[in-house]
Simulated scan of single mutants.
Amino acid sequence: MDFARAENTSRRYLDLILEANKRTNLTRITSREEAEILHLEDSWVGLPEINRAPAGRYGDLGSGGGFPGVPIALATGRETVLVDSVKKKMAIVDSALDELGIGEQVSTYRGRIEELALSQPQSFSVLTARALARLGALLELASPLLVKGGVLVCYKAQLSEEELKEARCVESMLGMRLISIREVMLSDGETKRTIVAFEKVGKSLVKLPRRIGAAQRNPLKPQK
């Protein structure tokens, strides 16, 4: 699919989500103009990093209403899995995907990321995570899902030196390596994004996945 068609289909998808949002809380953004920037433009911000990842499946962790997953799927043509544990949201997303006729390319997984890692380990070439967790937790969640050479692309509204340092301290024990950090200003002139990419370079020294929620509640510490 060329990018013009991807844009058009993404806008149709956005319209379906905004309409469903009137009945079910999928997104806090209700303005069509604001949603164009904060859902579509923001989703595509990570394309340079995603396009540098090896060919293969793409997964969007904590996908919610399907952003950035659906716009990225349409722009790249990758087989895509939208991962979220809120089944009601995923049912609405599934309905929108079917209405647009893209349900064969883009599917949903209604469960926890740790459960997906147990059932489909090392089956993704690229993963995204937007507004989901701290970088260290994201590295832990992504590592067992990625093939060697696969890439995790994190969208951050605010990235502190402390959060980045935490991630750098545990990346090697998780078989991950920081490959790029890029800051972007969206077209509204006020929304900043930091895109942080990590590559899967080897095996984790820690048995993964740990129990559900452990990555967030009990972050890993560097091994001595």
Rank of each mutant, 00 (worst) to 15 (best):
M185T: 12
S31L: 08
G136H: 04
R78D: 00
G65Q: 05
G66K: 01
R32G: 07
T80Y: 04
I181K: 14
Y109T: 07
V86Q: 00
E183V: 02
Y155E: 12
K203E: 15
L40H: 06
T24C: 02
V206W: 00
A96C: 09
G59L: 01
V196S: 02
G136L: 05
E115P: 05
A53M: 05
K200Q: 10
G56T: 06
L127H: 04
I102Y: 09
I179R: 15
E140C: 05
R182L: 12
K156D: 06
F67H: 02
R182A: 12
E171M: 10
L74I: 05
V184G: 03
N21H: 13
N8A: 15
M185F: 11
M185W: 11
M1T: 12
Q120I: 10
Q158F: 14
G103V: 11
I72H: 08
L174E: 08
N218C: 12
A215Q: 11
L97S: 00
V70R: 01
A197N: 13
V151H: 03
S180E: 13
I102R: 09
P222V: 12
A96H: 01
S172F: 12
L18I: 10
E171G: 03
A131P: 14
L40Q: 00
V184T: 12
R52K: 15
S10E: 00
R112K: 15
E114H: 13
L18N: 06
A133V: 07
V83A: 06
R112I: 05
D84H: 07
D2Y: 11
H39W: 09
S63A: 12
L97K: 09
L132G: 01
V153C: 12
N51R: 09
D84Y: 00
T191Y: 06
T128E: 01
R210S: 01
Y13M: 03
V206S: 02
R112L: 12
L118Q: 11
G136A: 12
I50F: 06
V45H: 07
A157P: 01
L208E: 02
P68S: 07
V151P: 01
G69K: 08
G175S: 10
M1D: 02
R110D: 05
V106H: 04
E161V: 10
E114I: 13
Q122A: 10
N51K: 14
N21K: 14
V45K: 06
S180K: 05
V81F: 10
R112P: 15
Y109P: 03
M185I: 14
G136C: 07
R168T: 02
L118I: 15
A131L: 10
L135T: 14
E166V: 08
S95N: 13
L186M: 09
R5G: 04
A35Y: 00
Q122L: 08
D2S: 04
S123F: 04
E79S: 13
A6Y: 02
P219Y: 08
N25C: 05
S187M: 12
G175K: 01
